[in-house]
């Protein structure tokens, strides 16, 4: 079982890039999500928005899209675009383990989102690769949890 570990300074670096992308695309929200549906970070105006559900559903969406790609002999489709009457979603791979979700409305456009995302992706990818490298070298011992604490939390009533 592998573990993804996001340290505070890496979370801040990711959030900075997401905020920059948000501003450059005039979008409403930018989220970074791992392929298992875990939300790494997000930026934007998501008042009362259920980001956890969005992370799970987009991960399912990406997984199903990967399945379709494999059926057609492609390794991946790289990106997905859902266009609504008011809100639209653009999803793009950031390497193999993470994807970025941009939610935007009529203040922006798919062309602008694609353009600015292409500019931002190398920086995102560099940080994500750094996080994956650190995760492979880190462990849960840094949290210091003991068996007794787990038993106390989840033991039989």
């Amino acid at each position: 079982m592998s573990v993804l570990i996001l340290l505070e300074n890496d979370a801040a670096r990711l959030k900075n890039l997401c905020t920059g992308l948000l501003e450059k695309t005039c979008s409403q929200a930018v989220l970074l999500i791992d392929r298992d549906g875990q939300l790494l970070t997000w930026s934007g105006l998501l008042k009362d928005f259920d980001v956890v559900s969005l992370a799970s559903l987009t991960a399912g969406n990406m997984a199903a899209t990967d399945g379709l790609a494999h059926l057609l002999g492609e390794s991946s489709f790289g990106s997905i675009f859902h266009q609504g009457d008011r809100e639209s979603i653009f999803i793009s791979n950031v390497g193999r383990r993470v994807f970025v979700v941009v939610i935007f409305n009529e203040r922006s456009s798919i062309a602008l989102v694609r353009l600015r995302l292409d500019e931002t992706l190398p920086g995102l990818l560099e940080i994500v690769d750094d996080i994956l490298r650190k995760s492979s070298q880190s462990d849960l011992s840094s949290v210091g949890i003991t068996d007794h604490e787990i038993e106390t939390l989840l033991g039989e009533d």
């Binding site: 573990v3 993804l4 570990i5 996001l6 340290l7 979370a11 298992d36 875990q38 970070t41």
Partner: peptide
């Protein structure tokens, strides 16, 4: 895959 987020102080697991 478990996800340990030091920024939000969370351990996330999938069942």
């Amino acid at each position: 895959m478990s996800f340990i987020n030091w920024a939000s102080r969370e351990i996330n697991c999938k069942i």
